[in-house]
Amino acid sequence: MRFRFELFVALSMVCLAVGCDGRPPTYLVHGMVVFPDGKPLTSGTIEFEALNQKKPITASSEIATDGTFQLGTFAPNDGAIAGEHRVAVISDFEIGTGIERPEELPPERLHLKYRDFKTSGLKYVIKPQTTNILVEVEYAPPKDTKDDTKTPPTRAGD
């Protein structure tokens, strides 16, 4: 009996330490975002939203300068849950460089359709194992960004 009691205490301590929160398990997902010519997308955010969930469960990651990412759902880099996901890739310019002024924006590199889950057309199935994913994206068509920056320029350079 005494042994059983100790076992119970030990188990409850383990449970307290690990935390019984009933979250779905996540699996490590590494990946890389590349353009058709093999060059990586060097900045931005990638988001994987699990389909067929009661509440959306989103895994996201910042894209590193070499184009790689490692998804995190409940903590940074902890992976994604298993199942089918739709994917969005957003690559805005980093603020603080002075280029948040519309008249000074360089042309968009990534096609803007990837900003939205509905229009990105990217879908991946995460299997319950460590996964490597290559996300292939297209360049923006040359004049795509004009519509978004139709603000009349104020005083440039201030």
Binding site: I90, D92, F93, I95, I99, E100, R101, P102, L105, E108, L112, R115, T145, D148, T149, T151
Partner: peptide
């Protein structure tokens, strides 16, 4: 895209 915190 790209112009957050500008007037747009």
């Amino acid at each position: 895209p790209g112009v957050w915190n500008w007037i747009t």
